[in-house]
Design a protein around this nucleic acid. Structure first.
Length: 879
DNA sequence: CGATCCCGCCACATT
DNA sequence: AATGTGGCGGGATCG
């Protein structure tokens, strides 16, 4: 065994990024116990070992003693590699020459490589986030431990945390059952509720002032005492199975994990510092925390945090307080839960999928796309990054979760596809019910899997999935077009004719978005001109405004009140927030501001808080159907719940039930007329060079499940250089053109349009605009970043999730993405998750330097991200 | 030097 | 008794 492992480990790949120094590091570590020799961590490396490596292996295998000896020797050496150690030294001298050494050195597993977080990612990568219900995956701890090359003990750490979130459950000794994230939102909801009971009060105080701690401490006592009961809700609720048995105090890790999560869920800022958490978590018992106990608790929290980070539920941040900077973690997972969320649309998707977390979460970027998988993928990949916003570049780092997840991603996609397919079928049967999500990638698509972009993001898709799964009202809502995007462009209305697929805006500055239209094509109703006009306006608005849009607005409120948005809501209470300086990322995405602010009152109104999510959805779906959203109104407006209601909703709703939401949705869909799918935007000042086409129809969200049916991609927007356009009379056919089949979603054959755009742009710069707008940086240097802003539904969501404070929506929100691969790639807007965005944004480069952005060299990835960043920045910074 | 957190000893539980 | 679990904290690394 050892050998085997070793081989893997050792040789190859250097770890790349890590700047480890060989010289110092390793030397120190003595080989400790002979016992566990194996620890290798595997890295993904294809590469085999070098010849020498083989030798070494053999040697080591042959005589452990030698190994040890050698290790010792090595210690002396300036350079060392753990791996080498493993290997025999004999080689070292001879074989290993410098070059070799280097390699080895590289290999040397740095501590990071052995981190629990990384291990957890590997672990998670082995299982689909959303396994098909049919398949039951059992996990053998021994097996996993050996596969991952770690001691079983470590696996327990991971599994215990996963179990606390019900991602897995223990079925027998050494056997766990993988459930995936299907129930995650529910679990989180439960935890949130429990948390509110236990810690709600505390949180209220949170942030207030330094006092916090005290308060916490105090409160803690009080509160805790009650609730403290160890058996948190959680276990009991869902599956108690294992729980029942818990006689032992153990499981503390699980309990701690749940409590820790609860703290995030009840925290307004969604940021919890380690020390506070440790204090709160130290059992109710005395607060007198002795230092050692505290220290131990913190240690455990790190373990938990690592796992949660891998799940993309939290990310590390630092809170700066008077005293200084304190380590803290920010919740980036779903905030609202389907059941609860009133908001139909937005939340559910978001929450469920989680942040996609994996993907989803991670893939905040996503923006775009409507339709096609490929496209989607790319988009997502490009932008997205995994959870952590760490700066790492995905591509470069092997470690990055994203990458690792790709596989996972693929599998997920497949699963999703399967699910979708089923869903679709169902939908097909009942056209009336078409779900927004209807378009999903087909399982068959290999595409997803195939080209993993370096940055993998999780796509929207996943998010979708959940939705699909839970076609509840919520999800449906999301889908709905409700957007009444009201805001109009300044210019006026676009001139659109009903029949026309595109709209032209004379002047510029518009941008827009696309909504997805989706399905619903069923009806042949076409919108009346008037409607259309309205619609258009709405559409426009929607992107940005999406948030602004009426329904959304309402939503926002709710959400907002519920969540504290960073910016807005918070202010009341918390100065603290300020204190905590989270990275911008938190703030995330501000959408940008357009130069011209549209004035959608609504938009403004919506701070962008939680509502955003809702908005997005709306945006996606353009509501072709109803102008302002009458229908939407239906749902949304009908429920103009204000804050209070939302709670109800949440409580009441079960994710499972389809009920109301669906109906509404269906209705809406039905109602919706077809609208032209694209909007043509003339170049504005900023973007003088490009023309944008947006497809009205496509709903970003909608991905094409249909895929099977329709291969076409739905692209929400296409941007072309003016020049390009010149040659072409105009563009593309709208998807509409093919309202085909049942699948009507907006997907159209993008191909044509896409191609065109491509031509114009030249392969190098083809840009697609997804829901998210993409901007090509280079294209117009002159343009302000702000101008370029784009909103993507995703963003919006993210915003909601994240909290946008920004006025965001207002501006032109278009984001442009470049596609590397021009070919038609569909974009799926929906996939995006709110939560992720943040991470997403950050990750990519959030840090990004302006320079980079500007450059826009072309990396699609880069660009996209850069753009977003801009947005982010602008938004953030703005204030 | 403080923040992280790997490592694995060892106690307790289960088989 | 052997093996499974997992609390726990020393001390190595990281930043």
């Amino acid at each position: 065994e050892n050998i085997f492992d070793r081989s893997r480990m050792a040789p190859k790949t250097p770890i790349k990024n890590e700047p480890v120094d060989l010289s110092k590091q390793k030397g120190c570590t003595p080989e400790r116990n002979p016992i566990t020799p194996v620890k290798l961590i595997d890295r993904p490396q294809p590469d085999p070992w070098t010849p020498t490596a083989n030798l070494k292996m053999l040697v080591s295998a042959a005589s452990p003693d030698m190994r040890d000896r050698e290790k010792k020797k090595e210690l002396f050496r300036p350079i060392e590699n753990s791996e080498q150690n493993d290997m025999s030294d004999s080689l070292q001298y001879d074989m290993v020459d410098d070059s070799t050494v280097d390699e080895f050195e590289k290999q040397r597993p740095s501590r990071k490589q052995k981190s629990l977080g990384l291990l957890c990612q590997k672990f998670l990568a082995r299982y689909p986030s959303y396994p098909l219900s049919t398949e039951k995956t059992t996990i053998s701890l021994d097996e996993v431990a050996s596969i991952l090359g770690v001691e079983r003990r470590r696996i327990y750490d991971i599994v215990n945390v996963l179990e606390s979130l019900h991602l897995v459950s223990r079925v027998a000794k050494n056997q766990y059952c993988w459930h995936g994230r299907h129930n995650l939102s529910q679990t989180l909801q439960t935890l949130q509720e429990a948390g509110e009971l236990q810690y709600g009060e505390l949180m209220t105080f949170q942030h207030k002032e330094q006092d916090l701690e005290y308060k916490f401490g105090e409160r803690k006592k009080e509160t805790i005492s009650d609730s403290q009961d160890r058996p948190l809700l959680d276990f009991s609720e869902p599956d108690c199975t294992s729980a029942s048995a818990n006689s032992r105090k153990d499981k503390s890790l699980r309990i701690m994990s749940q409590k820790f999560v609860m703290l995030f869920l009840v925290s307004k800022t969604k940021i919890v510092t380690l020390d506070i958490a440790a204090k709160i978590l130290i059992e109710e018992t005395q607060d007198t925390v002795d230092h050692s106990k505290f220290k131990t608790k913190v240690r455990r929290l790190y373990d938990i945090a690592n796992v949660l980070t891998s799940l993309c539920l939290i990310k590390k941040v630092h809170v700066t307080e008077e005293r200084g900077r304190k380590p803290a973690f920010k919740w980036i997972g779903p905030v609202e839960f389907p059941g609860k969320i009133d908001e139909p649309s937005g939340h559910s998707p978001i929450s469920d999928p989680l942040p996609g977390a994996q993907r989803g979460a991670c893939a905040p970027y996503q923006i775009c796309a409507t339709g096609k998988q490929r496209f989607t993928r790319h988009a997502s990949f490009n932008g997205a990054q995994p959870c952590e916003g760490t700066k790492r570049k995905v591509s470069s780092e092997p470690n990055s979760p994203c990458q690792e997840r790709q596989d996972e991603y693929c599998s997920k996609m497949i699963n999703l596809a399967t699910v979708c397919r089923q869903k679709i079928e169902e939908d097909t049967r009942n056209p009336s019910i078409t779900s927004p999500l209807s378009l999903l990638p087909v399982p068959g698509d290999s595409d997803f899997c195939v080209n993993p972009l370096p940055q993998a993001v999780f796509p929207v898709v996943q998010a979708d999935v959940p939705s699909l799964l839970l076609p509840n009202g919520v999800s449906s809502q999301a889908l709905q077009p409700s957007t009444p995007a009201t805001s109009k462009t300044e210019n006026g209305k676009p001139t659109l004719l009903p029949s026309q697929p595109f709209l032209c805006f004379p002047s510029s500055s518009l941008f827009m978005l696309c909504g997805g239209l989706q399905e619903n094509l069923l009806r042949e109703k076409l919108p009346t001109a008037g409607d259309i006009g309205n619609r258009r306006a709405e559409e426009k608005a929607s992107p940005l405004g999406a948030q602004g849009a009426g329904p959304p607005a309402s939503c926002q409120k709710r959400s907002s009140h519920k969540y504290a948005l960073p910016s807005a809501p918070i202010d009341d209470e918390e100065p603290a927030a300020k204190k905590q300086t989270v990275e911008q990322s938190d703030v995330p995405l501000s959408l940008i501001v357009p130069k011209k602010p549209f004035e959608s009152p609504k938009a403004e109104s919506t701070p962008g808080g939680g509502c955003a999510s809702a908005v997005h959805l709306d945006a996606f779906h353009l509501d072709l159907s109803s102008p302002a959203a009458p229908e939407t109104a239906d749902k949304k407006s009908t429920k103009p719940l204000d804050s209070q209601e939302q709670e109800k909703w949440s409580e009441n709703k079960d994710p499972d039930e389809p009920s109301p939401g669906k109906e509404h949705v269906s209705k809406e869909n039905a109602n919706q007329p077809f609208l032209p799918q694209y909007l043509y935007v003339q170049p504005t000042a900023g973007l003088s060079n490009f023309n944008f086409l947006f497809s009205a129809n496509q709903a970003p969200g909608a991905i094409g499940l249909a895929a099977s049916q329709l291969p076409s991609l739905s692209i929400p927007c296409v941007v072309m250089p003016s020049a390009a356009l010149a040659s072409f009379p105009l563009i593309c056919s709208p998807t509409i053109s093919s309202p085909l089949s049942p699948v009507p979603d907006g997907s159209f054959s993008a191909g044509a349009s896409m191609n065109i755009s491509m031509s114009g742009l030249a392969s190098t710069t083809p840009v697609f605009i997804g829901t998210t707008a993409i901007v090509t940086p280079n294209a117009s240097p002159s343009v302000d970043p702000q101008q370029t802003v784009h909103l993507s539904p995703v963003l919006a969501r993210s915003c909601s999730t994240v909290k946008l404070d920004s006025p965001v929506c207002m501006g032109h929100p278009v984001t442009l993405l470049k596609l590397q691969q021009p070919s038609s790639t569909p974009v799926t807007p929906k996939s995006i998750r709110p939560a992720r965005h943040e991470a997403f944004f950050k990750t990519p480069g959030s840090l990004g330097d302006p320079g980079t952005w500007k450059k826009g060299e072309g990396n699609q990835t880069r660009n996209a991200s850069s753009v977003q960043r801009r947005l982010e920045i602008s938004g953030t910074s703005t204030d």
